[in-house]
């Protein structure tokens, strides 16, 4: 039984997936603030709704972003704590992978980023092959299906560039449910510790005013 949860965007979600890939229970709430307070009670509710015990879990799956740095850390820290306590593996799943789970053909997964930028990754032959943080205007859609909240905005931009063939599509699964399914398709790695996918270094400027040279 895989328990999955995510707080990397302005929401909290949790899902429980059986070994035969049946969704046993799932909850989703839009939430910009208070995810740290809501996440664990929501996990307990999902477990309760499915009539499952902690001992039934074989794996934890967690959304690692890209997204809100603090939000990512909320879920990743909790997942690592749960995995340690239960002695089961934890699998980190990119939200871009989750968005495109169950799709075929060229697909571009997109998520909003601060300062008008977006996170993007292409699948099924679409570019970019690796996840990036980018200005939406630099993205070439080609004939790909675009998934994710910025999809409509990207298509509007692309029309100006006379790109044909691209279309928008909704994600096939809610975040936690998709994360559980992506994890299910991967071989569990007991040594893995889920790690946030930031795609942007920490904002920090080296100290100004160099110290004096010491003489004598």
């Amino acid at each position: 039984m895989i328990l999955a949860f995510d707080t990397s965007g302005p929401s909290v979600s949790a899902a429980l997936l059986s070994q035969d890939e049946t969704l046993l229970a799932a909850l989703y709430e839009d939430m910009a603030k208070g995810q740290a307070e809501r996440l664990m009670p929501m996990v307990a509710e999902v477990m309760h709704e499915a009539g499952a015990d902690m001992q039934d879990l074989t794996r934890i799956a967690v959304g690692i972003g890209p997204g809100n740095f603090t939000g990512i850390r909320i879920a990743v820290s909790a997942a690592r704590g749960m995995a340690l306590a239960l002695g089961i593996p934890a699998t980190g799943v990119s939200l871009l992978d989750a968005l495109t789970h169950g799709t075929s053909g060229p697909v571009i997964a997109t998520l909003p980023a601060p300062r008008g930028l977006i996170y993007a990754q292409g699948y099924g032959g679409a570019a970019p092959a690796a996840p990036i943080l980018t200005d939406p205007a630099t993205l070439t859609l080609g004939a790909a299906t675009v998934i994710g909240p910025p999809a409509e905005m990207l298509l509007t931009l692309a029309k100006g560039g006379a790109e044909a063939g691209a279309k928008a599509a909704p994600a096939a699964f809610a975040p936690a449910s998709a994360i559980a399914r992506v994890a299910h398709a991967r071989t569990p790695n007991p040594a893995e510790r889920p790690s946030p996918l930031y795609l942007r270094p920490a904002d920090a400027a080296p100290a100004r005013n160099a110290p004096p040279v010491i003489t004598g």
């Binding site: 740290a36 996440l39 664990m40 996990v43 307990a44 902690m54 740095f69 603090t70 850390r73 909320i74 879920a75 820290s77 909790a78 997942a79 690592r80 704590g81 749960m82 995995a83 340690l84 306590a85 239960l86």
Partner: peptide
């Protein structure tokens, strides 16, 4: 520093929920 405090609190909550 709230980011660090949050990481600790969430790790502890994960340990607590999973272990009872």
């Amino acid at each position: 520093l709230i980011g660090g405090v949050l990481a600790g609190v969430m790790c502890a909550k994960g340990l607590s929920l999973a272990s009872g």
